[in-house]
């Protein structure tokens, strides 16, 4: 049992708003004896595009999976729209990494997208025409409606990523968690995804996105979370994505630090 007096008030989440899309208190996740996430405390505000960046192995994917109850937590808890994940499941859309799946499976792109509706369809009931139409619409929104009946291994990387995205969209969730959606996709797909994300933001949805490319952080995200096993900094991109915070996150490992600084300079020069 926890002794309340031994834990400072901060981590009791007293100052986390009850209705925020995602509220994480004191989350710690470990593999064997190695901690991967240590003492993560976060609150995410609604209607924003939030990027999570950090070096490899920093626990970014682990964070997403721990929120989704896919990994066991050593401590801490997570609130989504004020309730536990189990209760708010319908309001959360998940876009996992592409490598998590065997693309040789005998399903078409439409089938994959329709999987996002299975929960709504319920146990043992078939996938009816209306659900397939919804899936089709989602495919259309990501721009690959013409590939609906193609088997997924015949899609390019960017098209596969779009199919995954469509699968999350078809749920019409309010909070989207995406794990490296921009990894190894072509520029056209990247532009399309960014457009989609901005559209989601306009509709008041929140997107939490694990991102790997420091160059594009300022351009894509309203807020940024810098992570390295713990949260180094969290806030609006303008004020948080600074060289000092980057140095604290990446330590000496950042060879891209110089490039990131250049990108920053270019962006701010371009803005003025």
């Amino acid at each position: 049992m926890l002794n309340n007096h031994s834990i400072p008030a901060r981590t009791r989440g007293a100052d986390h708003s009850p209705e925020s899309p995602l509220s994480i208190h004191d989350l710690t996740v470990a593999y064997d004896r190695k901690p991967v996430l240590w003492d993560v405390d976060l609150e995410v505000s609604a209607g924003k595009l939030i990027g999570i960046v950090g070096p490899n192995g920093a626990g970014k994917s682990t964070l997403i999976k721990a929120v989704l109850d896919l990994l066991p937590r050593a401590s801490g808890h997570v609130n989504i729209f004020g309730k536990s994940y189990k209760e708010s499941r319908a309001r959360v859309g998940y876009v996992p990494q592409r490598e998590s799946v065997d693309w040789d499976f005998p399903v078409s792109a439409l089938d994959v997208v329709a999987m996002g509706r299975y929960r709504k369809i319920g146990w043992c009931r078939p996938v009816t025409r209306s659900h397939k139409n919804a899936a089709m619409e989602a495919l259309d929104r990501v721009g690959i409606a013409n590939l609906a009946h193609r088997q997924i291994s015949q899609l390019s990387g960017g098209q596969q990523q779009r199919a995954f995205l469509a699968r999350a969209l078809v749920q019409d969730a309010d909070l989207y968690l995406m794990d490296e959606p921009f990894a190894a996709v072509d520029a056209a797909t990247e532009t399309a995804i960014v457009g989609l994300l901005q559209n989601l933001r306009e509709r008041g949805k929140t997107c939490l996105i694990v991102h790997h490319d420091l160059q594009t952080v300022r351009e894509y995200f309203d807020e940024v979370i810098l992570m390295n096993m713990r949260v180094v900094a969290h806030g609006p991109t303008e004020t948080t994505f600074t060289e000092e915070n980057l140095r604290k996150t990446y330590g000496g490992k950042l060879t891209l630090l110089g490039e990131a600084a250049e990108a920053n300079a270019r962006q701010s020069a371009g803005k003025h």
Binding site: L2, T11, A30, D39, A74
Partner: peptide, 18 residues
């Protein structure tokens, strides 16, 4: 062993001052 370690680790997380 792993079970014991996990318990010890969890206890450490909860008890550690910040």
């Amino acid at each position: 062993i792993k079970l014991i370690q996990r318990r010890r680790f969890a206890a450490k997380c909860l008890g550690a001052p910040h």
